[in-house]
Design a binder for these strands. Sequence first.
DNA 1: GGTGATGGTGATTAATTTATCACTATAGGA
DNA 2: TCCTATAGTGATAAATTAATCACCATCACC
Lengths: 123, 123
Amino acid sequence: MYQRKIPIDYSCGLNVAMEVVGSKWKFCLLDEISKGTKRPKDLVKVVNGITKRVLQNQLKELEFHGLLGKTVYTEIPLRVEYFLTESGESLMPLIIAIDKWGLAFAPQLKKILENQIPETEEL
Amino acid sequence: MYQRKIPIDYSCGLNVAMEVVGSKWKFCLLDEISKGTKRPKDLVKVVNGITKRVLQNQLKELEFHGLLGKTVYTEIPLRVEYFLTESGESLMPLIIAIDKWGLAFAPQLKKILENQIPETEEL
DNA sequence: GGTGATGGTGATTAATTTATCACTATAGGA
DNA sequence: TCCTATAGTGATAAATTAATCACCATCACC
């Protein structure tokens, strides 16, 4: 886990929140786990684009920060399940709202970003 | 503005949202602007730790993505004011909720991160 | 002994975001 | 002319996050 050089401003809630969930995958992971996908081998399948290594890193950080807990079942083959802690749960309403906002905003973003590229010249 | 090499997944709202506001300063900036600090020279003062250059970049991106608008008053010295667009406004309830969550979570995070360092050996 | 499934790590590089520093421009006024 | 305030940019470096790839371990089963 990377040791920050630039410290966190604990007095700013937005800063604190960004520190623990402001990364490419964490919201998605919390969301999927809350929806019932708890095992790494399944998460890597449902979360589109994530790799195994990155998944493990993110899960470890979420666990370290206290948003996820982990249960190890000594079965064969090994089974591990992650679950939301109380802190993690308390974030879910926000995640759902953000997801909703993002979906509504997607077309606008798409349009903006795509107008960058072509400039279809009509002859 | 950086040209992504890894594309955005528009079908995931969380992904989309992270793309436009998932950075160190954007939430804070939107928050401050909504609270009435609209000019760059003031924002650089209220947003603790941001530099002028970074501020300008973030404002430009927020404007580009359509969360902020900008009014230029041809006064001397030049006055520029940023304001929330409709999209920007629609994000405010979330930002407020996230800020609140972050403030509540701050003590927990602080404790976790500080237990890393000392290991005060009691002789 | 070899193979498969699952969870996990180490070392390294690539991608991306932030920070630094030095500039430009405008117009007012000393 | 020089200095001030404001807004803004260009080039570059540093910090941070994410991706790649190759590994290890366990136990069942063949």
